[in-house]
Write a protein that binds this DNA or RNA. Structure first.
Lengths: 223, 223
DNA sequence: TAGCTAACGTACTAGTTCGTACATTAGACA
DNA sequence: TGTCTAATGTACGAACTAGTACGTTAGCTA
C-alpha cells in the first residue's frame, strides 16, 4: 500500500518528470483519501493537492475518479494476495497450521486498516468496481488453496472432526479479523471497548485461534 | 425501520398536514437513501423527491443533512435494541440459550441489511454521529445482559469450560453475522460464493452456533 | 367563524466539484 | 544539437448540491 517516497536512489538523480513515480504518488494519496472519506466523500482536488503533481495528471493517467478508485482497489488487493503467497505453514501439523494461518490473517487486517476501509466502501457500492475490473476478477486467493490442503490433511489424520468447506472457514476467520477493525468505532462507542486496543491484541489473537481450532476439533458437532 | 404508509386508519380521514407522518416518511426514505449511497453519496434532493413533502421540510424538522443522518441512526439502533428486549432464552439450558441467541442475532442481521449498511457507513465516519448523539450514548444493550447471565450459569454448571467475557462473545457472534451481510458483495465477487444465498442460510446459521458452542465447551483451550 | 400558528411549497443562491481546453516543456533519441 | 512526444501546468466551465428567504394555508382553538 505504500510504495512511497523513493528518495532518489544514489546515482539516479531525481528527474523532474517520471511517469511511474507520479502514478505511484497519485495512487498512494488516493488510497488514503478514498479510505478516509469513502468514494463520494473523497475529493479529486484534495488528492491532487496532496501530490507533487496536479489534477490534470490524475485524468491523464487514470481517466477519472471512478477508474482511479478501481485502480486503488486493484493495488490494495494485489498487496494482500502477495502477502498470502508468503504463507509458509505446510510444514506444520494441521492444528498449528490453521492457528498460524488465522494469526497471519489477524495480523494483516490489523496492519492494513486502509485496506479494510476500502473494502467496506466497495461493499457499500455493491462491488461494482471489482465487477468492472478484469484484474480483480481472476486474482484468486493463495490462502484458500492453503486452507484446502490443511483441511484435507487434518481430516485424513483424524485431527479435525468437523467437515468444513475451505471458503466457509476463510469467511469465519476473515469475519472476526475484519469486524474487529471495520467496526472498531461503532463498537467502541456503543460498548465502551476498543477492539483494536494494543493491550488486548494478544488476547483477541488467541481467542480467534481458540475459536477456529475448537470448531474444527469439536467432538461430533451437530449434523 | 419501516413505520411507513399508515393508510389512514378507518374513521381517521387522512389529513393533508400531519407532522408525525411527514417526519416518519422522511426518516423512512432517508434510511433507504443513506443506506443505498452512503452519507456523502446520499442526496437531500433525492430524499425529498421520494417523499410526499419537500426539501424544506427536511430542514424544518431535522435541521440539516448531518442531523438527519444521526436521527436515522438513532432510530435504526432503537429498533434493534427493542428486538433484543424480546429475547426470551433464560428458561433454556446455557448451551441451548447461547445457540438461540446466536440464531436470533443471525436472523436480525439478515433481516436488516439497511441497518448493516448504515453501521458500515457510520464506521467509515469513525462513529462521529453516534458520539454526537445523546440518545445513542446511553442506549445500552439488553443482549449483553442476557449473555452475561447465560455465561455465568454455564460456567457455574460446568457446561462452559472457556472463561470468556460477555462483550467479547458478543463481538464474536456479531462479527460473523455482520460480515456475512456487510461483505456479501466483495466476498461474492472474489470467491464466487453468495454468503446470503437463501439456500445456504440454514447452513451458515448452524455453522455459527456450532462455532460458538465449540468455543465455549472446548476441553481446556490454551490459557 | 375568526384568528393564529404550525406546517408547508416555491424559487433561488452561494459554493463546490468533476472534468477539460489549451498551452508548455523535459528529456529521449536520431 | 535539433526534433518530437510523453509528461506536465493553468485556467476555466458546466453541473450539481446543501441550504435559505419569502410567501402561503390547513386546521386547531376560542
Amino acid at each position: 500500500m505504500t510504495s512511497v517516497e523513493e528518495p532518489a536512489r544514489p546515482g539516479e538523480r531525481e528527474r523532474v518528470r517520471d511517469a511511474a513515480r507520479t502514478q505511484a504518488e497519485i495512487l498512494d494519496v488516493a488510497t488514503q483519501e478514498f479510505a478516509r472519506a469513502g468514494y463520494d466523500g473523497a475529493r479529486v482536488d484534495e488528492i491532487a493537492a496532496r501530490t507533487r503533481t496536479t489534477k490534470r495528471m490524475i485524468y491523464y493517467y487514470f481517466g477519472g475518479k471512478e477508474q482511479l478508485f478501481t485502480t486503488v482497489l486493484e493495488r490494495a488487493y494485489t498487496v494482500i494476495r502477495e502477502a498470502e503467497q508468503e504463507l509458509d505453514v505446510e510444514h506444520l501439523d494441521p492444528v498449528a497450521a490453521i492457528r498460524r494461518l488465522a494469526e497471519v490473517t489477524f495480523d494483516h487486517h490489523e496492519q492494513h486498516p486502509d485496506f479494510i476501509r476500502l473494502v467496506s466502501i466497495e461493499n457499500i457500492h455493491e462491488a461494482h468496481h471489482i465487477a468492472a475490473s478484469e484484474k480483480l476478477g481472476r486474482i484468486g486467493s493463495p490462502a484458500l488453496d492453503v486452507i484446502r490442503r490443511i483441511l484435507e490433511e487434518g481430516r485424513r489424520s483424524g485431527l479435525f472432526t468437523t467437515d468444513v468447506d475451505a471458503v466457509d472457514l476463510h469467511a469465519m476467520i476473515s469475519s472476526f479479523c475484519f469486524f474487529r477493525v471495520s467496526n472498531r468505532h461503532t463498537f467502541g462507542a456503543l460498548f465502551g471497548r476498543d477492539l483494536v486496543d494494543p493491550a488486548q491484541r494478544a488476547h483477541y489473537r488467541t481467542m480467534l485461534g481458540d475459536m477456529v481450532i475448537a470448531y474444527l476439533t469439536a467432538e461430533r458437532a451437530s449434523d
